[in-house]
Each structure stands twice: as structure tokens, then as C-alpha cells.
Design a protein around this nucleic acid. Structure first.
Lengths: 220, 220
DNA sequence: AAGTTATTGCGTATGGCATACCCTTTGGCG
DNA sequence: CGCCAAAGGGTATGCCATACGCAATAACTT
């Protein structure tokens, strides 16, 4: 039944000594995805990197989908410790820590979109963000919604990070008859203002925290 | 040259009458993705549905990746008209319209994550959101950052929509020794409060708009 | 000590996939 | 009326996930 994610590897002593381990497989898979992206991840590739036959992997992992879930939960790791006594500081720490994960492992963003099962580490992250809001007087459902806004910002910022997100078609935009249809956009592009990606994230995060704060103010 | 997205179909009169068209192909592909998800989308499948040979598609589209870009830009369509005189109302309208697209075509969320090229429609959406902020006194870079926060919320909410996002492992969470590690989460799950998904989106959106408003207040 | 059996590694086979190549057919233009 | 650009699409290649089965292994049983 159930879940390698939650149960971990369980093998009873009978039979030959296993040459691999779930851990080694997951780690090798992560190394591939880190270096060459999810597109380069195949069972054959993982097996080759481990010096094993492709089908041997299936003695440890039921399939690729489950492997990716394991990779995500591994890469996500433990949530940061939040002990600042201030929900705002805690939530900010949480958001930055989560953002860091996506920056270090850009493939995880794609791995995390779509239907899938949450692992223990990811569940622990949810727990820690919710716990940070326990002193705020927000209702349980509100706390969840707050966590979701913050989480949206984390992923939103990760999604547009340079080299891993959408790019404007500069060639088309450089033709005047095209450019003229997007005046506000051109204004942004031609503004001299320096554009720091890290700041995109922090700016949005602060707006969100301000918005949450405003809600709390109306209640106190 | 380059981009079908921006140039559209161009074929010169010579040769046999084309049996298909870029439009019909994109539409058929969207129908498949809508009905069965991106996973069911293959060139062979699209061709079969159109009663054509697989390779014929390549007379119209350079490859699958470009096809998906075309699907996205088609599905995204024109941005809503924003004429309320209030940036807040406009941004809310924009956000809901965008959210609707993802609700109607859940596959588009995955299609939109990762490196890719923006089409004219998507660019027009960016333009329209930026234009809505023109009267606010925000700097060009700030306007872009604001749009990004809102966009993050749209996608964040779409990402957790039921049936298309992460699901908690209820089985694991129902074991006491596991549940006890996630007290705040359990509090949310066991709260009787009704939980409306549409409200997750609207709640977060309002917090964000409040936060933007707060910034504007400090400047006026 | 010998047999039993669960378990492992993994070769092979299957069926799907994107797409390169190339041949045949078509029909507007010269 | 013939030329040739462009369309249809069959075939081939090489990758992929994964089902199945077999031989080797080693703990447990007797």
C-alpha cells in the first residue's frame, strides 16, 4: 500500500544484498535534474549514472512519478525554524527559505505543479507556516488562505526567474508597429531603473505582509 | 522569421491546397488537452483527430513545443477591458479573468511553467495590467512588480484547485503518531469552517490589493 | 548441512513518443 | 502545358516507461 514518501524503504532480510538504495537513487536523480533539468531525467539515465541496469530501479521505486515526488520532498527538506515571536518576521523567513529551494532546484517548480501527493517534508512546511500564524487571531481557514497567498508569491517569483521563465519576444517588440500596441510595457522596458530579480520577490512579499497586517489591524 | 506566435501562418499559393490549417490544429490540440490533459496530447493523437497523417502536422507547426505555445496564447485570448477608473477594480477584474482561464484549461498551468516565449495575447495581458496602474504614481519597475504579485496569486490559487493540485496524504495523517507532528494543520482540517476554493483566491487577492493600497497611501 | 523461498539484478520485449528523411502528388505560375 | 514549390504522409530512428520472466543470492527452516 501507500507511500514510499511516508513509509520509507522497507525490505526484509531475505535475498541478495541490495546493491542500491532508495536514497542513492533519489540523490542521483536530483543530481541529474539539477544539472540538466527534468527533461534529461529518465530511468535509464539514473540507472546508468548508478552503474545499474534500468530495471533494477523498479525494485526500489514503483515508477517515475513516485520518484519525482520523492525528489521533491527530499529537496524541500526541513522547514526553517520560526521563533521570532512575530508572525511577520516568521512568514518572511519561511517565504525566503521556500524561495531558496526553488532557486537552487529550478526543476522543482515544474515538479510541483499538477496533481500529486504531498510528502512529509512538504507537509511540515505547511505546518510551520500555519503555526507561525497561531497568535494572530485568524480563523483556521483564514490561516490557510494566508499561507496560500504567501506561497503563491514564492512560486510566482520563482516562475519568472531569469532563464527559467517566460521571455518577451524582443524581436517582435522592436518593430514599431508592434511596440505601439504595448505602450505601458515599452515604458517599463525602456525605463532606466535597474531591475533586480531578488527585489521582485521581496517587494511583492512586503505588499502581501502589509495586506495581512491591515486585516489584523481592522480586528484589534 | 521565427515565430509562428507573432507572424501567424504564412503560405504562398504554390502547391496543393492545404488540407489543414494552423488554426484547426491548435484547436484540435486544445480540445484534447481540455478533455484529457496535457499528458494525452501527442502529435499522433492530434493528427488522428483531424483525420490526417502525423507528419502532416509538421507542415504547419515546427514541433510540439511550439504547438503548446500556440495553444497557450490561443487559450489566453484577449485581456479584459479595464475601464473602471480605479486601479483596484481593474486589477481585480484582470486577476479574475486570468484565473478563469486557468480554471477552464487546467493544463495551461503546466504549459506556462518553465522557459518559453510569450505570445502576443499574453503580452497584451501584461500590457493591460500595467496600463491599469498608470495613474498610481508607481515607478515603471514597481508597476511590473505589482503585476507580478497579482499574477502569482492567480497561479498560486489555480495550482491548488481541487483535482489539479497537491493533496495531503489523509491516510498517513490519520495515524495519531503522525498527526501529532502537525497540530496546526490538524486544527485547520478539523475546523468546521466551510472551505470555499473560490474564496481562497478572492481572500488572497484582497490582501494583496490592500497591501498595494497601503503603499500608495504612504506616498500620497 | 541441505533445502526452501523471498528477493535482487537485469535482459528482453512491448508499445508509445517526437521527429528526420524522402517520395509521391498537386496545382499555380511562367 | 510543363515546371517546381509546397503539401500529404509512409517509413525509419532513437528515446522512453515499464511488464515479464529468469537466474543468482542468501536468510530462514528443518
Amino acid at each position: 500500500m501507500t507511500d514510499l514518501l511516508w513509509e520509507g524503504e522497507r525490505r526484509s532480510g531475505r535475498g541478495p544484498k541490495p546493491a542500491l538504495s532508495l536514497d542513492r537513487i533519489v540523490q542521483a536523480a536530483i543530481a541529474i535534474a539539477d544539472a540538466e533539468g527534468l527533461g534529461a531525467l529518465s530511468m535509464q539515465r539514473v540507472a546508468t549514472d548508478l552503474g545499474a541496469g534500468t530495471m533494477s530501479l523498479y525494485r526500489y521505486v514503483p515508477g517515475k512519478e513516485e520518484l519525482i515526488n520523492l525528489m521533491v520532498d527530499r529537496v524541500v527538506g526541513d522547514p526553517p525554524t520560526l521563533d521570532s515571536e512575530s508572525w511577520r518576521t516568521d512568514l518572511r523567513t519561511w517565504a525566503h527559505a521556500s524561495h531558496d529551494v526553488f532557486r537552487r532546484h529550478p526543476w522543482s517548480l515544474s515538479a510541483v505543479t499538477g496533481k500529486r501527493s504531498l510528502g512529509p517534508n512538504e507537509t511540515a512546511w505547511a505546518e510551520s507556516a500555519l503555526a507561525a500564524l497561531s497568535g494572530t487571531g485568524l480563523s483556521p481557514a483564514e490561516r490557510l488562505k494566508v499561507v496560500n497567498v504567501v506561497n503563491g508569491q514564492v512560486r510566482g517569483a520563482a516562475q519568472i526567474s531569469p532563464g527559467h521563465g517566460p521571455v518577451l519576444n524582443i524581436e517582435a517588440l522592436s518593430r514599431p508597429e508592434v511596440a505601439q500596441r504595448f505602450p505601458s510595457l515599452m515604458a517599463v522596458l525602456s525605463s532606466d531603473e535597474e531591475f533586480d530579480m531578488a527585489d521582485v520577490f521581496e517587494f511583492g512579499l512586503q505588499r502581501i505582509l502589509d495586506g495581512i497586517d491591515a486585516l489584523l489591524q481592522t480586528r484589534s
